[in-house]
Structures are given as structure tokens and as C-alpha cells.
């Protein structure tokens, strides 16, 4: 029954998704001797058509690095963005195909990603969102969970990070911040109730530009948990992660 309901919802969802508007695509003119068209958006798909110099193609849509075009004869195929960048727009200028590269890494505004690692011996995973005020300074919000053999943690924190050399491909940074952490004790312990504590942390990390909009990230954090007990707890967190920037 539930399967049937789900199918109905799916069909309903999809009914409205067809490209309804009449195709009114922009056109570009081939300037190189020919333009290869493949059957799909990838180097593994075969070239089945070429467009001659001087012929126009309509630009339909783009998926990752590939652009779907329609020829004057109505044949549809996929051309690589680098090949499309060598076509001419209606003004006779080289077509501008926006791409993201290392230059944008230096001037990024937003950054989001996820990290996995260890936190006080527990396995941790978190997701974060960061915003850059300047190319050096950013603020980050992190939401995560860690699961140990007897305790589980959930945490939310804000940090200020500073990278002294934003133009470096391997860019180290410092981080400083605070937040809250909820500790849940498993059934096996002497029954302790859940508690939420404030935390402050300081850490050191590195961002590594990979390709396009992607970077890798490694971080060490020392977190101090401000408990009600006589002594505060301290724990180390090591994480590695993958992020995208915008």
C-alpha cells in the first residue's frame, strides 16, 4: 500500500517537472573547423555528429562541464565547455562560459562541507557552513555528532578562523570559538542523565585547494568542556573533510 502511495506521489511530483516553456535558446556560431557532439555529458560517450564552421547551434543546458546543444538540423548532442568557449556569440565575440578555478578559491565568500574524525576517542562526523568577511577572516557554524562506546555527543559551535596566506594552495589557518555540547550516556553505564555543557575551543588546520569548487581540509582542535564539576574536561579532536566553496 505504502509503495503505491509513494509511487503516486512520485508521479504527481514528476508531472509538473517537464520543460514546458517553448525552447527559446540562445545560439552560438562554430568558429573552429568543427565542433564534436557526443551522445552524453562525458568523455566516455561517443562522438556521433560534428558541426561545421559557420553553423549555428542552440545552447540548451549545461551539466557539469558539458553543454547540450541543438544543431540547425535539429540534432541534439553534448559539447565540452572548452570547445564551446571557442565558438562565437551573436556579437561575433568568443562565447563566455563561466568556469570555477583556483583564482576563485582565493576570493571565495561561502564555504560548506563535512568532516569526519575522532573526538575524545569517539567517532565524529560534522557539517559546517562558513562565511568570509575578508579573504583572511571567516566565521563558521558547525553541527556534529560523535559516537563512543558508552557516550554519544552532539555539538554546535561557532568559530572565527584566520588564514594568513589565502593565496596559497595549501593554506593553513587558526580557529577559535565556542559552543554547546550535549552528552548522552548509553544504557550500559550507571544511569546518568543527559547534560549540556558550554565549550570553548582553539585549533589549527589546513585547507588544500583540489579542483574546481573543491577543497580538502584537515584540522586539530582542543576543546575545553566547561562542566559543573571541579575540573573542566579537555578533549582532542582530529578531523579530515571535504568542502565546496562558492
Amino acid at each position: 500500500m505504502t509503495v503505491r502511495i509513494l509511487l503516486c506521489i512520485l508521479i504527481l511530483c514528476c508531472a509538473g517537472t517537464g520543460r514546458v516553456q517553448a525552447a527559446d535558446y540562445p545560439s552560438v556560431r562554430v568558429a573552429e573547423p568543427y565542433l564534436d557532439l557526443r551522445t552524453g555529458p562525458g568523455r566516455g560517450y561517443p562522438v556521433t555528429q560534428i558541426v561545421e564552421r559557420g553553423d549555428w547551434v542552440e545552447v540548451m543546458l549545461r551539466r557539469t562541464d558539458w553543454i547540450k546543444v541543438r544543431t540547425e538540423k535539429g540534432f541534439e548532442g553534448w559539447a565540452h565547455q572548452n570547445a564551446m568557449a571557442q565558438t562565437l556569440d551573436p556579437d561575433g565575440q568568443p562565447t563566455e562560459i563561466p568556469t570555477v578555478g583556483e583564482g576563485d578559491f582565493v576570493h571565495r565568500r561561502w564555504e560548506t562541507g563535512f568532516k569526519i574524525g575522532t573526538f575524545a576517542g569517539a567517532r565524529t562526523s560534522d557539517a559546517y557552513l562558513g562565511y568570509y568577511f575578508t579573504s583572511n577572516l571567516s566565521i563558521e557554524a558547525t553541527l556534529g555528532e560523535a559516537f563512543g562506546s558508552t557516550v554519544d555527543f552532539q555539538f554546535l559551535n561557532l568559530s572565527l578562523t584566520h588564514q594568513p596566506w589565502p593565496q596559497w594552495r595549501y593554506s593553513p589557518y587558526l580557529t577559535l570559538g565556542g559552543g554547546a555540547k550535549t552528552t548522552r550516556y548509553g544504557d550500559t553505564e550507571v544511569q546518568l542523565s543527559d547534560r549540556t555543557d558550554q565549550t570553548v575551543h582553539a585549533g589549527l588546520g589546513i585547507r588544500i585547494y583540489l579542483t574546481r569548487q573543491l577543497m580538502a581540509r584537515g584540522e586539530y582542535r582542543n576543546t575545553v568542556i566547561l562542566t559543573d564539576q571541579e575540573q573542566n574536561e579537555e578533549s582532542d579532536e582530529w578531523t579530515i573533510g571535504l568542502s565546496a566553496f562558492f
Binding site: 509513494l6 540562445p26 540548451m60 543546458l61 553543454i67 556569440d89
Partner: peptide, 21 residues
């Protein structure tokens, strides 16, 4: 009127959302 291709005119389709069963 500049006829050149604007970035917004190319429809980017890089996100995928769906249901599974």
C-alpha cells in the same frame, strides 16, 4: 543590444533530488 550569451541563459543542471524505495 548586446546579443552575447549571458551566464543566466545557460540552464545549469547539476543538482539532483529524488525519492527511493
Amino acid at each position: 543590444v548586446r546579443l552575447g550569451l549571458k551566464e543566466s541563459e545557460i540552464d545549469d543542471e547539476n543538482f539532483e533530488l529524488g525519492l527511493f524505495a
